[in-house]
């Protein structure tokens, strides 16, 4: 057990956990931020994607001890009221079906658009390929990413 001072969604949070604990479980079990989802636990599905700084990371294999004082953003911290451009584009295109994978999809799309505000179809495919959706919402996700400005 060790104490970590984290910067989550612009708020200082202190947790006392095993240093190896993936930040996914710190968020979900300790900080009650359940928007970040568990899908595979081995960095293969993208459901747990968060931003560390401006970079999309798989939180399920990222030990809390490696976060340091970097700013972490989760789906809950993307905007006050769901009005981040990517969230708005997702609503406009009515993307979700079951919705479970969508937090991860959105966070990865946010990181992509920060790095590349006008991605081509191929660039979208390349960046989003690790985010699996069993409901098959890929066509809409691509349209939403292109529309998000």
């Amino acid at each position: 057990m060790a104490t970590f001072n984290l910067n989550i969604n612009g708020k200082k949070q202190q947790v006392e956990v095993d240093p190896a604990t993936p930040i996914l479980w710190v968020l979900r079990d300790h900080l009650n931020l359940v928007g970040t989802k568990y899908g595979c636990g081995i960095a293969q599905c993208g459901s747990c994607t968060i931003l560390v700084g401006d970079i999309a990371m798989r939180s399920c294999m990222l030990p809390v001890s490696q976060i340091g004082n970097q700013a972490v953003t989760t789906i809950e911290g993307l905007s006050e009221d769901g009005d981040h451009p990517v969230q708005k584009a997702w609503l406009e295109h009515d993307v979700p079906q079951c919705g479970y994978c969508q937090a991860g999809q959105i966070m990865n799309a946010v990181a992509l658009l920060k790095a590349n505000p006008k991605p081509s179809d191929e660039e979208i495919d390349g960046a989003m390929n690790g985010n699996i959706c069993r409901c098959g919402t890929y066509v809409r996700i691509k349209a939403a990413i292109k529309a998000a400005v």
């Binding site: 931020l33 359940v34 928007g35 970040t36 989802k37 989760t74 789906i75 809950e76 993307l78 905007s79 009221d81 769901g82 969230q87 997702w90 609503l91 009515d94 979700p96 919705g99 479970y100 969508q102 937090a103 959105i106």
Partner: peptide, 12 residues
């Protein structure tokens, strides 16, 4: 439920 989903509300 679109807004709840894209803002990560506890639903599941």
């Amino acid at each position: 439920d679109g807004k709840k989903i894209v803002t990560g509300q506890p639903l599941f």
